[in-house]
Every structure is written in structure tokens, then in C-alpha cells.
């Protein structure tokens, strides 16, 4: 399913919150039909990276290419039209609109009414719970259902690339498993290209084809996700491999090899 064609290429972007440099030259690329995940701890700059790609923030330096078209500094609503859908951290649904209206708003940039209905049915078949809640206001949904709604809403714009920011945030392990399973199916059946930002490294690496590890505004490691899940550092620091015995702590030389 993964083609050589690169959908998204980020080159050396730098971004600031006032005087604080949040991204210190980040580069990555996403191939069509793949799932790429960006891992990292709190404050590593993952969300900032996503905001820069979707146009909510503008990078100070560096370039972003969407299918070879340079898009850095483009307004967010134009980028949605160009095919970037961003599902933000913490759901951000429209609380007082119904599930149906929320999904319709996801298709705001489209005007093909029949296709929109068709897609709504299609994506609801991946998230059957949404169908049963169709007429309810989004605020009556549980956290997991809201996350599913946010993802389905993102898909409704028929994006070339779906940016997912921490879809596992605040969800039970069972729900995380369910949602990641659905993402995997969406990728395999519908060919949805996904850039996924996660703290839950195991869940992310399980479905991703390629992974990047971010720390303090930089990408410190990248590789196929199978290689990453095997890398000793990743196992220790993100997957919780048991090295935290007294002996392990003494072997300070064995700390992360990057940095």
C-alpha cells in the first residue's frame, strides 16, 4: 500500500512561542499510504510540530511541502482545502452540535452533498457507536466516543494526510486498542495516510510503518517502527522494559545514546 510518493515533507522547521524555541530544526517525511508516528515525552514539541504543519502556527524558518507544493505560512482553512486534516489534542468537538452536524462541519470545505452523505455512512461504519448517537449533542458523548467523533470529523474533509495528536489521551487501554485498530483498518482499506503523535509508544509503533523520536524540539532518532521497537533505548525509555533495578540505575553509562 505504501508508495514511494511523498505526501508531506518537513524541512528544518523552527518555531517559537514568544522567546521560547519549541522546534529547533525538525525534518521528517510521510509517504502516501503510510502511518508515521512521532514519539516523545511531554514538552518535546510534538504538538507544536502538528500545529505548524496544519497552519495553526507558522514556522519561523524552514519549509513544509505538501505534494511538492510549498505550504508553510498558509492559513489553516486553506490547508484543509489542500488536504491536511488536523485532529487536535483533547478532542475539541463542537459540544452543542449533534454528532451529525459535527461530521457535516468536518466536510465544511466540500460541496458535493451526495458524496458527503456517502462518506458519512462509510466512516460511521468504522465507528459504529457514532451511528447510534447520531442525533445526540457531542457533549453527551463519552471521552472515547468524542475522540472517535473527532477522528471521523477529520476524515470527512477527505484529507490527503490526517494529523492525529494524541488520540490515546485519557482513554482506557481497551479503548486505545480499539481506536488504534480502527486507524489501522482505515489505513489498510481506505489508504488513509496518517501522521500520528503519541506518548503511548507501544500502541503507536504497533500500527506505524515508520517512527521518529522527538526530544526538546529535535528529532533524535528515526527508523522503521519494527527497528525502533527493538532499539534498546526506546525499550527502556518509552516501552518500559525492566531496567529500573538498582543495578540498572547504577549503570549510568547505559543511558540514552542520543543527545
Amino acid at each position: 500500500m505504501i508508495s514511494k510518493e511523498v505526501i508531506l515533507r518537513v524541512e528544518n522547521i523552527e518555531s517559537y512561542y514568544g522567546p521560547i524555541m519549541a522546534l529547533k530544526g525538525v525534518s521528517l517525511q510521510v509517504q502516501k499510504g503510510s502511518i508515521v508516528s512521532v514519539l516523545g515525552a511531554n514538552g518535546a514539541g510534538k504538538t507544536t510540530l502538528m500545529k505548524n504543519i496544519s497552519g495553526v502556527m507558522d514556522p519561523e524558518k524552514g519549509r513544509i511541502f505538501l505534494e511538492n507544493e510549498s505550504v508553510e505560512g498558509t492559513e489553516a482553512d486553506i490547508l484543509v482545502r489542500k488536504g491536511v486534516a488536523h485532529v487536535p489534542e483533547g478532542r475539541e468537538v463542537f459540544p452543542m452540535l449533534t454528532v451529525e452536524q459535527n461530521l457535516l462541519m468536518g466536510a465544511y470545505t466540500r460541496s458535493d452533498k451526495k458524496e458527503i452523505r456517502y462518506d458519512m455512512e462509510l466512516f460511521c461504519s468504522y465507528f459504529p457507536i457514532l451511528k447510534t448517537r447520531f442525533e445526540q449533542m457531542a457533549l453527551t458523548l463519552s471521552g472515547g466516543e468524542q475522540q472517535m467523533l473527532a477522528i471521523a470529523r477529520g476524515l470527512m474533509s477527505k484529507p490527503k494526510i490526517l494529523l492525529l495528536d494524541e488520540p490515546s489521551l485519557g482513554l482506557s487501554p481497551k479503548l486505545v486498542k480499539e481506536i488504534f485498530g480502527i486507524l489501522n483498518r482505515l489505513n489498510k482499506d481506505q489508504g488513509v495516510t496518517i501522521l500520528l503523535v503519541e506518548q503511548n509508544a507501544k500502541a503507536a509503533l504497533d500500527i506505524a510503518d515508520f517512527g521518529y523520536v522527538m526530544e526538546l524540539g529535535r528529532i533524535v532518532l528515526d527508523g522503521k517502527s519494527s527497528e525502533l521497537s527493538e532499539a534498546k533505548d526506546i525499550q527502556e525509555f518509552y516501552l518500559g522494559a525492566n531496567q529500573e533495578s538498582q543495578l540498572g540505575q547504577k549503570r549510568w553509562k547505559n543511558r540514552k545514546t542520543w543527545r
Partner: peptide, 10 residues
């Protein structure tokens, strides 16, 4: 209702 989300959906 949610300005940020409105930005995100275009």
C-alpha cells in the same frame, strides 16, 4: 462553540 476546532475543520 469552539473556535479552535472551527479553525481545524477549515
Amino acid at each position: 462553540q469552539n473556535q479552535l476546532a472551527a479553525f481545524y475543520v477549515g
